[in-house]
Amino acid sequence: MRVCNIFPQFRSLAGGERLGIKITNLLSARGYKVILLTLSMNPECEKELTKGVEVIKFAPFLDRVRNHYWKVFLEHLFVYWLAKLIPEDSDVCLFHKSSSLPALFYFKRFRKAKVPSFYFCYEPPRFLYDLKEETLIRLGIWGRFIQPFYPLLRYLDKKFAQDSDLILAFSEFMRREIERIYLRPVKMIGPLGVDLKGAKEESKGGEKILLTVNRLHPRKRIDILISALPSIIEEYPKIKVLIVGSGPEEMNLKRLVQELGLTEKVNFLGYVADEDLPNFYFLADIYIHLAKNEPFGLSVLEALAFGIPVISVKEGGPGELIKEGETGLFCEPNEKDLAKKTIYLLREEGERLKMGKKASSLVREKFRWEDFIDRLSSLFPDKE
C-alpha cells in the first residue's frame, strides 16, 4: 500500500516535526511504501528519517528564510503545489498540520481525487484563534494591515478542513478544541507512543537538574522557569537548568538569564538529536513544562517514561498525561507557584522518587507506538 504524507515544512526538529517524522518512519517499518512531500526540510530533520522513505522537496530554498512570519506566509503560498505532486496511485493521503489544508482543498476540489484523505490536526492555526491578539502585536504595522482579513482567513481555514474524509486528533483536549472550531466529528487517534529504550527509574545523586525540552517560542513560557530560579536557588543552591531546543525566543531568554545573573545556572543546549535525548533525561531530577495549551506534550510523555516527575501547567494535552500527586504536580503559569512546587519536590526526595517510578510504570503500560500505528492503519482502506 502506498501512503503519501504531506507535511508542509520541516523548519526545525520541534515537537510537530518530530511527530511527523516518527509517524513516517513507523509506517515505513510496517511495510508501507511511504512518500513524504514537503516544501523544505531542515537537515537536522532529514537525518532522523529511516531508509526507504521517498522524500520530495518542492521549495528547499525556504530553509534560507530566517524571518518566522515570512516563512509561514511563503509556506501557505507554495503549499498548493504539493497537491500537484501527490502520485495518482496513492492509496491513502495523510495531511499534517493546518498549513496543509490548502493542499488538501486543491487535491479534492481541483484534482477531483477520490483517494481517502485524513487531516492530522495537531492544532488549529492558533494565530487565527486563541493567539490572534498576540500575533497581531508581534507583527507590528503588518498586523494592522492583516487584521481586516482575519474573518476571511478563518472562513477559509474552516472551509478547507471540511474536505478531509476524517480529522484526527492526538488528545481529548485537542479533539474538543477541533470540534468546537470546525463543527464536525473528530476521531481521537491518540494517545501517542514513547520510545522506552534505555529508560531507567533510579534517581541521580549530587547536583539537582531541572530539564525542559521545547522549541524556544513565547508560548512555551520558558521565561517563567528562568524567573522562578532565584527563589529556588535560595533553598537549593546546587541546582542547574538544562534547556534543550532552539527557536525565535532564544536571544530574549539568554538576555533574561544574564540580567538575573544566572549564566552559571542555566545551560542552553540548542538542538539535540532524538538519539541523544536520553542522555539528558537520565540527568534530570524534575521536568518542567509551562507551554500554553500544548496539543499533546510529547516531551512530557518522554520525561515520564524515563521516571522523571513533571511539574506542568494544567492546560492542553499534558493535563491528560499527568496524575496529580502520583506522577507529577500541576502549577499555575507564574514564577511564584512554579518555585513553590519545585522546592517541594526537591525537599521531599522520597515523594519525588515514588512519583518517578509510578510515571515510568504507567507509560510503559499505556503509551506504545505499536498500538498507535495499529489504530492508524486500521483506518486505511483494505487493499485487494
Rank of each mutant, 00 (worst) to 15 (best):
R255C: 04
L128V: 04
K47V: 14
F282Q: 13
Q147L: 11
L136Y: 08
L338Q: 12
K33F: 08
I232C: 10
D374C: 06
K200L: 12
S40M: 07
L136R: 03
P87E: 02
K238H: 12
R111C: 05
P191R: 06
T38R: 02
V194H: 04
F170G: 01
Y344E: 14
D157F: 10
L301V: 07
S246G: 14
L260C: 04
A273S: 15
E335H: 12
I23C: 06
V241P: 00
L290R: 05
G270S: 01
L242D: 00
R221D: 08
F296R: 07
A14G: 12
E264A: 13
D157V: 09
I146C: 06
T24E: 02
G190C: 09
E384F: 03
L19T: 07
I35Q: 10
R175C: 11
Y182V: 13
L62V: 13
A303T: 08
R219P: 01
E172D: 10
V92E: 00
Y287T: 07
E259D: 11
L27Q: 06
H96P: 02
F61W: 13
L62K: 12
L211V: 08
L277H: 08
F367Q: 07
F380M: 11
Y344I: 00
K159N: 05
M188P: 01
R215D: 05
G15I: 10
C331K: 09
L283S: 04
R180E: 13
G198H: 08
K84M: 08
D63I: 12
S171H: 03
E384P: 13
I322Y: 07
T24Q: 05
N25A: 14
E348Q: 12
L338S: 08
V55R: 09
R126P: 05
P333G: 03
G261Y: 06
K314D: 05
K22A: 14
R375M: 09
Y150V: 12
E44P: 02
R175T: 15
E75C: 15
R11K: 08
M174Q: 13
G328S: 09
V3L: 08
I141S: 06
A339L: 10
L27V: 08
Y122L: 11
I6E: 00
C45A: 15
I167W: 01
E234A: 12
Q147W: 05
F105E: 15
S378I: 04
V244M: 00
